[in-house]
Every structure is written in C-alpha cells, then in structure tokens.
Simulated scan of single mutants.
Amino acid sequence: MGATTFAGPATNIHHVGMSVADLDGALTFWRAFLGTEPRWRTVLKGSYLGRHVGYPGVRIDVAFVDLPGGTVLELLDYDVAGKEALAEGTANPGNVHLCLAVDDARASWHAAVAAGARPLVPEGPVEVDDGPNSGAQVAYLRIHDGITLELFQPPGR
C-alpha cells in the first residue's frame, strides 16, 4: 500500500504499543528476530502517567524497539494487580496484529519461528490468490502474549 497524505487531525504514526506480561520475555523475541537491542528501556512512573493510562500510581516497565521503516514499538509491562491475558484468536473483537513488510516471507518466517514465534500454518507462508495483493506471500504467527505478527512479502518479490 502506498503512502497517503491526510488533511485530518493526525500527521504520522508516532509508535505502536503492546502490553506484555513479561518485558524480558518479549524482548527475547524481538532481539532474536530483529537482531537489535531496544532503543531505550526504563520504568515510567511520572505523576501524569496514572491519569493518562487510567491506573493511578502505576509503574510501567517499558522498552522501545525500532522496527524496520522507522516505526517504534513500545513494549509495556504494567505493574498492576489483576492483569489478564486476552484471548488470542484474531477473530476476537479488539484483537490487533502487527504486519511487517519483508523481502523474503519464507526466510522471515523461519527467523520468527527460530526466535520463538508459533506459526498458524505449519508449512509456512501462503500465497494470496485474490484481490489487490494477489501473488503476495503472507504468514500469521503468534509471538509473546498471544500477539499476532503478520509477515507480508509484496507480489513480484
């Protein structure tokens, strides 16, 4: 999909955030898959934070990971009682996925599996056979916390 200019209230993607159960565990996947260290890791605890996220007095162990293309992935481990894992099925309302464009879907799929991802299709990426992305190679994998990572190799690569 090409770049689009908007005249609306947003100007750009600043970051994508994912709540995680264990920040070290999530970073283990991203380090292995991307081969890079997080840009920044800290504990957020500012006075504004509880009001901002709806948990007064919260502390959040957080890391920022640079994704290819310039988007920052913010991994957040909230220090609150009663956290519950969400159902991981992609058909569940509220479920989101992160899609990364790749040059070689099969090689990226193998790298993700080696880093700890669980493939939804055990034989690897499938070919898109309909619509505007016909000929593309795609794969859904589950990473830490049941989050879905999609790999997308554009048609013709």
Rank of each mutant, 00 (worst) to 15 (best):
A105N: 11
L67T: 08
D22H: 08
V53D: 06
P38Q: 09
W40K: 15
N95H: 15
N133S: 13
D129S: 06
E37H: 08
A101R: 11
I143W: 04
Y55I: 13
V128C: 03
F33Q: 05
G146T: 05
L86N: 13
V65N: 03
G25I: 01
L34R: 10
G82K: 05
G94V: 01
A21H: 05
G135I: 00
I13A: 09
G46S: 12
N95E: 02
A114W: 01
I60S: 06
I13R: 06
E88W: 09
F6Y: 10
G46A: 04
D104R: 08
V20E: 09
A139Q: 04
R118Y: 01
R31T: 07
L27G: 05
G94L: 03
P122S: 12
G116A: 07
H14C: 05
V53Y: 09
L49S: 08
M1D: 11
S47G: 09
D24G: 14
R106N: 07
G89Y: 05
E37S: 12
H97N: 04
L98A: 07
N92Y: 02
N12E: 14
S108C: 13
A107G: 06
A105T: 09
P93R: 04
L49Q: 08
E123L: 02
D22V: 05
W109H: 15
A117H: 04
S47F: 02
L44A: 12
A63F: 00
G82V: 08
T5M: 13
P119H: 12
V128L: 11
P38G: 09
A10V: 15
L149M: 01
F29D: 07
Q137F: 07
G46C: 03
